[in-house]
Amino acid sequence: MSGALALREPIMGSVQAVGHVPGTRSVVDPDDAEIGRRFAAGEEQALAWAYEQWAGQVHGMAVRAFGPGPDAEDVTQQVFVAAWTGRARYRPDDSPLPAWLVGICRHKIADAWAKRDKQRREAEAAMTEAQARPGGPVTAGVDAAATDRVLLLDELDHLGQPQRGIIELAFFEDLTHAQIAERTGLPLGTIKSHIRRTLERLRTRLEVDGAALHA
């Protein structure tokens, strides 16, 4: 958070006459950290800036998961609406705003998968019943992955830093523990013990609440 601020272009205007024309953009391009702080403070303009900067990234992820079209657009919309309504939970000092948005996007993608999976199972169960096939629900336990994924992402949200950042680099950027140490500047031993404890914590969460258990 230290580091020199880049010199921005001044706002041109007059104190006596503040001419803010709705729909036009200020000449100031705030940096990412500034957008994050203003977003957390609830400034509406910051939502528009965040969208300008990162909607392409979020939508890109959604398109990768669902292909281009209404599903990806729906996820993108949900991410920004959830981020805005949940902005009280955003800690600008903990993570950059785009990383937080991407985290929410993972949740929305996993939620959409779980919902599809549930619909599919319900459809299958209905069909099984209609056909009076013996053997009960055919997919019990098999599709625990979708709901377990939702659980695990939730558990990641409860991790503090640096644990969360470390495991995200391992999971989502496919870095080795040595690369993570290099990236974060933390000692190798610290990285290894955080990875160990986080994987144990995730395993415990699955054992306690996992879908497979309740299927």
Binding site: Q57, R64, R106, L152
Partner: peptide, 17 residues
């Protein structure tokens, strides 16, 4: 479950409509 390509760090921007 989590380290799947679909959830990986974003690579390509796709501007939404």
């Amino acid at each position: 479950l989590l380290a799947v390509p679909h959830l990986a760090a974003p690579v390509d921007d796709v501007p939404p409509p």
